[in-house]
Simulated scan of single mutants.
Amino acid sequence: MVFPGADGVTSVPESHLPAGFLGGRRDGVKLLVVDRKGGAISSDIFMNLSEYINEGDLLVVNNSRIIKASLSAYFPRLGKYGDFNFGTSRKGGMVLAEPRPKELNRDLRANDEVQLIGPDVSAKLIRKHEEFERFWWIDPGVDGNNLMTVMKSYGKPITYSHVAFPVSEDEYLTEFSRVPGSVEPPSAGIPFTEEVLDDVEGAGAEIAELTLHCNLGSLEFFEFSKKERLLNEEYSIPGRTLRKMVETRSNGGRVIAVGTTVVRALESYALENSIDYREEGSYEGSTDIFIKRGFNFRAVDGLITGMHDGGSSHIDMISALVGPEMLQTAYGLAVQWGYLWHEFGDMTMIL
């Protein structure tokens, strides 16, 4: 199967700016509705999301908030400037980071000094990641708490080339963003507005939360697929959310994940625990789960997500949920209907 955007095979229309920059509303993006059981595929506007929600459904959202994890940097041995994008992974005083632009990686060596611009801090490259050579374990030159302070004062959101110019942290925040920790945005929540949430609850559905802090995810096409794992990510699921899932299922409702991050957290939990868990408190865990075709979904019945490039881990997950043939058809129609890709683009709802 060849999906739009897969390794440059088919170009896709990209969203280069948030909706507000274009004079639009966050909830004014398109919504591709895929009925995986009935086979119907249709197009709507995201503000009409509640029309596809049933009474008794449960939407589970990720309340992680993005942090400004990209710092401008100077690489003295190379005489070049770039960025250092910091991840969430820590190991023995080292922090995972990715130098950008990616071409820098060809010439970097262990023990290279990196001068972080602004805070006047010198970091040092220690070694490449054990599996993903795009990433480095580094000594950041400050301890973890001070690194967070440095990023808050001097950092910027991690941004990739499809975005026309750097945008503020606020553009990545959602109605649910409460717990700082993601270095890349859990962007499926971006189109949700107060009006959309009111309509969803008015349709008789409920909203529950969990936290998964997104790690770095900028690997080139198929690199995660070849390893069949992602970088490790920490998550926390409140007991209330787990109880609501049990009640929803027992009453015939659907558990709908808002974003692939929610799917990873819930399905990782379900692999290790009975889904009828009802205790108070929260379940803390970590996951590097890679969901592909043939996966047995235990926790979720539907998914609300963005438009993803072929070759990404997101496509593998969606293909596992809806089937590759239907996904191929749906994405083909999305291209015909003028859908826009990436975090500020249009949305997909799979039920």
Rank of each mutant, 00 (worst) to 15 (best):
R298L: 13
L333E: 13
P13W: 00
A73N: 07
S168V: 05
L49R: 00
E284I: 03
S313H: 10
V95Y: 01
I304T: 01
V322P: 09
V60Y: 02
R178P: 07
S225G: 09
L197G: 06
D44E: 11
E272C: 11
M326I: 10
F86M: 10
I291Q: 02
D57A: 03
L303Y: 06
S187P: 07
E51S: 09
L22I: 04
S43C: 06
A69D: 11
F165E: 14
R243P: 06
K30M: 01
S282A: 13
I117R: 15
Y283G: 00
G310P: 11
G285S: 05
N146A: 15
L327Q: 12
S313R: 01
P119L: 03
S161T: 12
K156Q: 14
C214F: 06
W337E: 15
E103N: 11
R278E: 15
R127W: 02
K156G: 09
S177Y: 13
L351S: 12
G189P: 03
W136F: 11
E284L: 10
E184I: 08
P140M: 08
I53K: 00
T174E: 07
G189E: 02
F165I: 04
Y81F: 08
E184T: 13
N232K: 12
E233F: 03
I41Y: 06
L49N: 02
G285M: 01
G253S: 08
S11H: 04
D316P: 03
N63R: 09
N296P: 04
Y52M: 01
M347W: 00
S153N: 15
I289C: 07
T329I: 14
T329S: 12
V150S: 03
N62W: 10
A270G: 12
D309K: 12
A19W: 00
R298M: 01
E175Y: 04
E272I: 04
N111Q: 15
C214V: 15
I237C: 05
V95C: 05
A164D: 15
P76A: 00
D44G: 02
D199C: 13
G281V: 03
L58P: 03
I275H: 01
E220C: 00
L216P: 10
